[in-house]
Simulated scan of single mutants.
Amino acid sequence: MYFALLAIGTIIVVASCEETSETYSEFTKDGEIIYVGTPDTVIVAPGFEKLKFSIVINADPKISGGVLQTKDKSFNHEFDVERQSNGNDTISFIVNLDEGEYNFDVLLKDDSGNTSIPREVTTVVYGTKYQNALLSRSISAIKAFETHAVLTWGDVPNGSISTSISYEDANGAMQTIEVSNDISETTLSSYKLGGSIIVKSIYAPRSNAIDVFSSISETVFPEQFQINHTNITALRMPFDASDGCYGSSYERLTDGATGEFWHSCDSVEDQYPFVMSFDIGVAANLSGFRLDKRSECCGGRSPASYQIWATNEIVGAETMDIDADGDENNVSIAHWEADAISKGWVKLVEVTDNTQETFEVLIPENSTNYRYVRLVAISSINGEITANFDELTFMATAVD
């Protein structure tokens, strides 16, 4: 029995070896396959319609070249390997490609035609479409003053690495400055009213990009500038509205910020119609006026009908009470206007149908610069006699 079992086992082993030999022969019938070293690392750096490949190869001395090809074989680029050292080395080259997404295989080879196992690389080529979709950093606000302009910047667009601005200075010459991403506000000490502003933002689609992309936008400075609020003081002439009630004051009206209001008291001088007088600090060619509504509520109490008056001679310029001898037909307004004209005041603008709670009005061009200004508020938007608003702003095109 022992010898019988031994014979059977020997037959099984021999049969098994024959099957293994047949299987191995099936895979080596064309000769044993030899592979060269696979690329250790493939780094891709994008540019404009191009890619830079940096391929890290190991110390396998048989490696003599390689090939970069797309999966569908529509693109094929062969490269030589010229070692700079005996160990690991890096081979770099640039290929030009159309914009789009690509899936590559990178293979290394030797002089006998043996290749490495391919290393797959997926990447993007950037070009005109990418660049055209970029936006330059926005300027969210431009505040122009007599001596300077302040630009407030919007958020930095994703991918933007820097921004520059080219602008016309007061002499019409173009100046350029860099604006880093951490800057939210830029002050220009010289600028031209209505002058050109060109914003250019630079983008790198990836941190190792070999080219940068740009986006350019253009705008202009305002045609007029704000009178510096720090120069404005209240004249408080006879029969003018008071400092107001509920903690308000004239200073709140010209402090350069909204959020704190002026509110009329119950006196007739404070209620519609009423007059407010200001010294704007310089003789200016007035070109505009802005009123900001009360930010917390009650914007309907802003003026619907109002006038702007100006003069350069304040001595003897006191006028009659605008509320004196008035009736429902506002006869007193006509009387007050006649008295104001006789005292040297000039009416610059009149509005009778305003419906905007916050509004700006252009003052028609005139040939005279004025220092003293009056707001004559005749009636409110909602018809109430109570008045409140946040801020008054005066604009000009020139000063003495």
Results as ranks from 00 to 15, higher is better:
E19L: 07
A144C: 04
F75Q: 14
T123A: 05
G195S: 00
M276W: 10
D30M: 03
Q175K: 10
T152S: 15
G37N: 02
A377L: 13
G37Y: 09
D266N: 13
N86T: 07
F213M: 03
I363T: 06
I381A: 01
F27R: 11
A45I: 09
A149M: 13
G195Y: 06
I202C: 00
I57K: 10
Y35Q: 06
L134S: 14
E120V: 11
S162D: 12
T397A: 02
S162G: 01
G31L: 04
D169Q: 14
E260C: 00
K200D: 04
A283L: 14
R290T: 15
L51P: 13
N208A: 01
G66K: 09
F289I: 00
L291T: 07
G154D: 09
P273Y: 07
T319G: 04
I63T: 03
T70I: 08
I33A: 03
T163W: 11
C245K: 15
P205F: 08
T311P: 06
N103W: 02
M1I: 11
N330F: 04
D292M: 15
T368H: 11
D255P: 04
D105C: 02
V14P: 00
K293G: 06
R236N: 04
P205K: 05
Q271H: 13
E318T: 12
S112M: 04
K62R: 11
I8G: 00
D110Y: 06
D111N: 15
E82Q: 14
Y2W: 12
V125Q: 08
M1Y: 15
I177G: 06
S162Q: 01
S180G: 12
E99D: 05
T90W: 15
F261Y: 10
S136H: 04
K71Y: 13
D182V: 03
S190G: 08
D325P: 05
S190P: 07
V121Y: 09
G195T: 03
D98L: 13
N76E: 04
I308A: 07
T258W: 05
D243N: 07
M276D: 01
Q356L: 10
E120W: 08
G344D: 09
A387M: 09
K192F: 12
V36W: 10
W262G: 14
V220R: 00
